[in-house]
Design a protein around this nucleic acid. Structure first.
Length: 979
RNA sequence: GCCGGAGUGGCGGAAUGGUAGACGCGCUGGAUUCAAAAUCCAGUGUCCGCAAGGGCGUGUGGGUUCGAGUCCCACCUCCGGUACCA
């Protein structure tokens, strides 16, 4: 599959290997893509800036394959286009080099992650440079380098030493009023010290475990350790016991996604246990509303006196909104009835509901297995010793024992139950046990049973729900199984009868207006009924308007080695203290997690074995043990875009003036897999830094774009073993065969990568076809946001295109074919039309159609003996961002300049040239095209009508009378005769 | 399951509600060549037809419209995410 021109070394040949090598080296030697910042020689503050950012890669030991650079090529083209359009472009690259992939690679290959990482980075840099990507390499960073991660630790301390003052009203530079602000913890402590702030009920509840007099003690009476526990409840970075999926055999915690339906690890198939675990958390939920609002906010300040709004694809915004999952509704208090006396206990059961309007349809309640009502955490809520008379046997669980045993057994089983597999979650049968306790519906007074069931989670809302089986699918399934009443209280608008209608409609079977009730909602719409019920509940002190979020706080610690150490230590009195920066990761040869077969083995992070020199640290004269967890890989990628602006600053994470000059990022390109988590986490950190005055804009990424994957066919033999795509050929029928054995292979479409042996390194393709060809082909495969399959046949078309451009401008002897005569009118019209289209499509990241327009223009040149000067020059300018090596070579060969194509001005077009006097109109009869007519652009409709109706092929389709019903003219587009 | 996206010739894809298939690959025929590669020219959704022209055609089934690949409703299939892969 070698191309034929390899041996052609004549003066006029397009020798891409030599050309690409030459310009690659030229650009690096001349610093062609270096960006100047405030304070640099040659920085021009009057020039508009454009910050084009890629999601930086984590450097795996396998190197890049041709699927990886798709986004980098796109951002490179855009950067070059913007530079030519007069912008000071910042386009940096770096490496997300901490984290699990690097650690796992190190384990597999038995090398230290620090060594493996450096090697991988060198390899990646070579590969990226090979692709002719115009990064400013002076700005390269790596998250695992000490001069980077010391600032990651610094940013973490900003979070640790601040709290979210939710009621604070303030204005940003753009004049927007914002509610809530991250505020230094020292201010909080000062307000406690001065008495301006008192301990909250939540503080007292937490203190109850530490002091007997928590109910009425004051801040002044607290010990330092107790005060620190209070402050922990406020910090943006705080410690909390959370339940995780613990796999002792792997010595790691797993995501739900990494646990199989059988409750075993995906990797290795080992048992996984639910286990509570003290973790560092980040209070992202405090920012839920602002993360939501700013997606659509107008007038975000840009730090330079201007404003901006987010230009993100709507689907990505939608995913973020859904992830945050704000739902408005109400909290409702249900009286819990004493099983013996039947009277209400003092502590009611609180639920959150998004549908207060369905309150009259609530026929039972469900609490989560961890709820205090059933864990005995609150003596108020004791489960009775005997089943109430007439309890349905189905409600009593598997045991025939008393309610306490049944509930305890169910709760324990739920806890033991290894992680749920979501696929099965909703489809699987609901289970639950009656607690023996009844509640009273606050609006109707009806007694309803309380169940414990694992379809309710402690993580969302209050861990308890009111069940409305007529209008909630899960409640419905549960009610059907346990024979509970199903009461319709909402009528579907269309009258469409669904078994379980969950949409909005009209309230029915509730009190009717005229009846003496504040809850008279029958006949009201869902929205009206919801508002009325909540207002009435509030008046009766039985509930309140409330908002709930799906978003949870962020578990921020990992029991790993290859990550940023926390700049914290544990004081002997049991609270965290800040240590000096930087906290260097100790050099350990044994960095693997400790594994065990015993689920109860204490969890010991690898850093626990670092030796006392490292683990013990003196803080203000007290010997403390360092925090042994490390940060997740997200940490480094949450702020790297700021470090690129000022990568070598030793005194600050980023110089304030430079930050103002370059933020926000104008275009952020990355994989669609980061659409929710990474983008949300980075936005969160940025907002904290914004609140604290460290950055000047409230959002980091002005425009966001997610590129699709490059997929590739993969092949397996009869045993199911993957066969390297280099060893696959095709028979005449197109069926895949093994090159060596001739065996017939199976083909399927998959992600490109090492696993399927279907990836190719860019060097291999670049050597064979040329880097410019590779760049063009990846952009030409289809819309940037879509996934597309790699094809070794398709790439030839782009190579042909470049060769054709070359031959149009250079003859076989290497002499240019430029004509000094001006271009003919038709050629100029085509040229200027192409400028208009290409510019528009590059700006819109529609590279496939931009390239198509260039191909079309170039194809018109093939028939010419010589190419007019203006056409040649303009064609090269438009080609420059896409195929920079060939562009520079031809630019200098044609004598337009030397090595300066990247800094030329983008061509402008003359709109007058694009106006045409006549237009070719398709003529439809009843929506079917029957003819085409060439008319002057200003032909009147009546004139047009008589012309059209006289057309032979139109008349054939008219009725005998010649009568028409309508005559529709869409100016310049189409004519439709309706008969 | 839930959230988001995508389904158009043999293939990748193009198309502000206005001629479906731009452009590229592949294929067919021709020119050039001793021959081949490369290159150039012409053709190429499908069915009927010598042609002119006509029928059908954008995952499936409905709907809105003078007109639907595009908008609405209901499905099917595939892809991404689902919080400790990032």
């Amino acid at each position: 599959m070698k191309t034929q021109d390899q041996s052609d070394t004549s003066a006029g040949a397009y020798d891409f290997r030599q050309i690409e090598k030459h310009w690659r080296e030229y650009w690096l030697a001349h610093g062609t893509y270096r960006t100047s910042a405030p304070g640099d020689v040659g920085y021009d503050p009057a020039k508009p800036k454009c910050y084009v950012l890629d999601m930086f890669p984590y450097p795996s030991g396998d190197g890049l394959h041709i699927g990886h650079p798709k986004g980098y090529i796109a951002s490179d083209i855009y950067s070059r286009f913007k530079r030519m359009s007069g912008y000071n472009v910042l386009h940096p690259m770096g490496f997300d080099s901490f984290g699990l992939p690097a650690e796992q690679y190190a384990v597999e290959h038995n090398v230290h992650p620090a060594v493996a990482t450096e090697k991988s980075i060198d390899h990646y840099r070579d590969q990226l440079q090979f692709l002719g990507l115009g990064f400013d390499w002076d700005r390269e960073i790596a998250t695992s380098h000490e001069d980077y991660y010391r600032w990651t630790q610094w940013v973490f301390l900003q979070l640790f030493e601040s709290w979210y003052d939710a009621d604070r009203m303030w204005q940003d530079e753009g004049g927007r009023t914002i509610r809530g602000r991250a505020t230094p913890v020292v201010d909080l402590i000062a307000s406690f010290d001065s008495g301006r702030r008192r301990l909250s009920p939540a503080d007292r509840q937490m203190l109850a475990s530490l002091r007997s007099d928590a109910d009425d003690c004051t801040w002044a009476a607290l010990t330092e350790a107790q005060r620190q526990h209070v402050i922990n409840n406020y910090r943006m970075a705080y410690q909390k016991e959370v339940t995780v999926n613990w796999c002792p055999r792997l010595g790691t915690v797993l995501a739900n996604e990494e646990v199989t339906a059988e409750g075993r690890s995906e990797v290795g198939d080992f048992p996984v246990y639910k286990r509570p675990f003290r973790q560092w958390m980040l209070r992202i939920t405090a920012y839920a509303d602002r993360l939501l609002e700013d997606l659509d906010a107008k007038g975000l300040p840009d730090g330079r006196g201007g404003t901006f709004e987010l230009d993100w694809p709507e689907p990505i915004k939608l995913m973020q909104r859904n992830w945050i999952g704000r739902s408005g509704g109400g909290r409702v208090l249900f009286d819990v009835l004493d099983p013996v006396t039947g009277s209400a206990r003092s502590a009611p059961l609180e639920v959150f509901t998004t549908r207060p309007d369905t309150l009259f349809g609530a026929s039972f309640m469900v609490v989560a297995p961890g709820h205090p009502l059933v864990t005995g955490g609150d003596s108020q809520f004791a489960v009775p010793a005997v089943w109430p008379g007439g309890t349905d046997p189905r409600w009593q669980g598997d045991s025939t024992a008393d309610p306490r045993e049944a509930v305890a057994a169910y709760t324990q089983a739920a806890a033991q139950k290894q992680v749920d597999n979501r696929v099965a979650e909703d489809a699987k049968e609901k289970t639950g046990v009656f607690t023996g306790i009844f509640a009273s519906n606050p609006v109707s007074g009806v007694q309803i049973p309380i169940f414990v069931a694992d379809y309710v989670s402690m993580d969302y809302g209050t861990g308890a729900i009111m069940a409305v089986p007529a209008h909630d699918d899960r409640d419905h399934a549960f009610a059907e199984k346990y024979g509970l009443p199903i009461i319709q209280v909402v009528a579907a608008p269309s009258g469409a009868e669904e078994v379980c209608f969950t949409g909005e409609g009209t309230a029915i079977n509730s009190p009717t207006d005229g009846v003496e009730s504040a809850y008279a909602i029958t006949g009201l719409t869902t929205a009206e009924a919801r508002a009325k019920i909540v207002a009435a509940l509030e008046a009766a002190q039985l509930g309140a308007r409330a908002v709930s979020y799906r978003l949870r706080d962020w578990v921020f610690s990992r029991q790993r080695y290859w990550g940023e150490p926390f700049p914290l230590a544990n004081h002997p009195d049991g609270y965290p203290v800040v240590t000096d920066l930087p906290v260097l990761l100790p050099d350990m040869q044994d960095f693997k997690p400790s594994t065990s077969d015993d689920p109860d083995t204490p969890v010991t992070p690898p850093l626990g074995r670092a030796g006392q020199d490292w683990t013990q640290v003196d803080v203000s004269g007290v010997s403390c043990e360092r925090e042994l967890n490390v940060m997740p890989q997200w940490a480094g990628s949450c702020w790297y875009y700021l470090r690129f602006i000022d990568p070598h600053n030793e005194g600050a994470f980023c110089d304030a003036e430079k930050e103002r000059a370059f933020m926000p990022v104008d275009l952020y390109i990355g994989g669609a897999e980061h659409a929710v988590l990474h983008l949300l986490y980075a936005r969160f950190w940025h907002k904290v830094l914004f609140d604290l005055g460290h950055v000047s804009s409230p959002e980091p990424f002005k425009k966001q774009f997610s590129q699709g994957m490059i997929t590739a066919d993969a092949f397996t033999d009869a045993r199911g073993v993957y066969i390297d795509i280099r060893k696959v050929s095709f028979d005449s029928g197109g069926d895949p065969l093994h090159t060596e054995t001739g065996e017939k292979l199976n083909r399927f479409r998959g992600k490109m990568g090492k696993r399927y042996k279907n990836g190719l390194p860019p060097e291999e393709v670049g050597e064979e076809y040329g880097v410019d060809t590779l760049r063009l082909y990846e952009m030409y495969m289809g819309p940037l946001e879509q996934s597309a399959p790699w094809s070794m046949e398709g790439i030839r078309g782009m190579q042909r295109f470049l060769q054709r451009v070359w031959r149009n401008l250079v003859d076989a002897e290497g002499v240019t074919r430029i004509d000094t005569e001006p271009a003919p009118a038709e050629m100029r019209r085509l040229l200027h039309g192409t400028i208009a289209v290409v510019g528009e499509h590059l700006e819109g990241l529609r590279f496939n159609t931009a390239i198509a327009a260039l191909i079309k223009l170039n194809n018109e040149l093939v028939a010419l003996d010589r190419v007019p000067h203006e056409v040649a020059r303009t064609l090269l300018l438009m080609l420059a961002p896409l195929a920079p090596h060939a562009g520079e070579e031809l630019w200098s060969r044609c004598g337009f300049g030397l090595g300066d194509l990247a800094h030329q001005n983008w061509p402008t077009f003359d709109a007058n040239l694009l106006v045409q006097d006549t237009v070719s109109l398709p003529v439809q009869v009843n929506g079917k095209v029957r003819a085409t007519i060439e008319v002057a652009i200003d032909t009147s409709d009546t004139e047009l009508q008589s012309l059209v109706l006289s057309l032979e092929n139109v008349r054939r389709f008219l009725p005998e009378t010649g009568e028409i019903r309508r005559f529709i003219v869409v100016p310049g587009k189409i004519v439709n005769v309706v008969v």
